[in-house]
């Protein structure tokens, strides 16, 4: 029991720490993989919580997801490697206060409420039970998730494709101005100046 507690505290601390680092590192690739480490720590906590399938599946899914996330980070952020210090935030105090108040309120709620105590029997075949449930009583829910994912795929392709119903999606697009109401940012071709 001692080892399990120790493992939990180490994993919990690393989940929170790496989650925090996501918004503090300059390198975007490091930020994505920091989030991945947070997910991996949570997945390992789930292993401790007797949910091996969900835990390992979280690690698996998040490794793929954060890999894609890292590519998008490199695509859409200036300074993706963090070679210069960077601070791209707005309403920072409000955000920090909201985050902290959420944490404090949830913690108080957790500490004050009467939590249920009916732990999983370690000998229970939880993966088998989950499989039977997914393709048994809860098949409709499972299939709904599947259809939702299919709809997501179709929607993603439609949203992100360049050719739209009314011509190319990027036709006539201008970069946003650097100051409100100013000229579009970016390089202007010489013959237009």
């Amino acid at each position: 029991m001692e080892v399990k507690d120790l493992a939990f505290f180490v994993l919990a601390a690393s989940a929170v720490w790496t989650g925090w680092r996501v918004f503090r590192v300059d390198s975007m690739v490091r930020a994505s993989f920091s989030l991945m480490l947070s997910f991996i720590a949570v997945g390992l906590i789930m292993l401790l919580l007797a949910a091996p399938y969900i835990g390992i599946a979280t690690v698996f899914m998040m490794a793929v997801e954060m890999m894609v996330m890292a590519l998008f980070m490199v695509m859409f952020m200036m300074n993706p490697a963090g070679l210069n210090p960077m601070w791209m935030v707005h309403q920072h105090r409000l955000a920090a206060a909201t985050g902290f108040i959420t944490f404090a309120a949830l913690t108080i709620a957790v500490l004050l409420s009467d939590l249920p105590g009916n732990p999983v029997d370690p000998a229970k075949p939880v993966i088998h039970d989950l499989g039977v449930e997914l393709l048994g009583n809860s098949m409709l829910i499972f299939e709904t998730a599947g259809i939702t994912l299919l709809a997501t795929m179709v929607g993603t392709v439609i949203l992100s494709s360049r050719s739209g119903r009314y011509g190319p999606a990027d036709e006539g697009s201008l970069p946003p101005p650097l100051t409100p109401g100013g000229r579009p940012a970016g390089r202007v071709p010489e013959d237009e100046e």
Binding site: Y53, I56, A57, V59, F60, A63
Partner: peptide, 18 residues
């Protein structure tokens, strides 16, 4: 001898790409 051994292997595959 994990009950979800094959999923663990899958996670290792995904992390290898990373």
């Amino acid at each position: 001898d994990l009950d979800a051994g094959i999923v663990l292997w899958g996670a290792c595959e995904a992390l290898t790409v990373v």
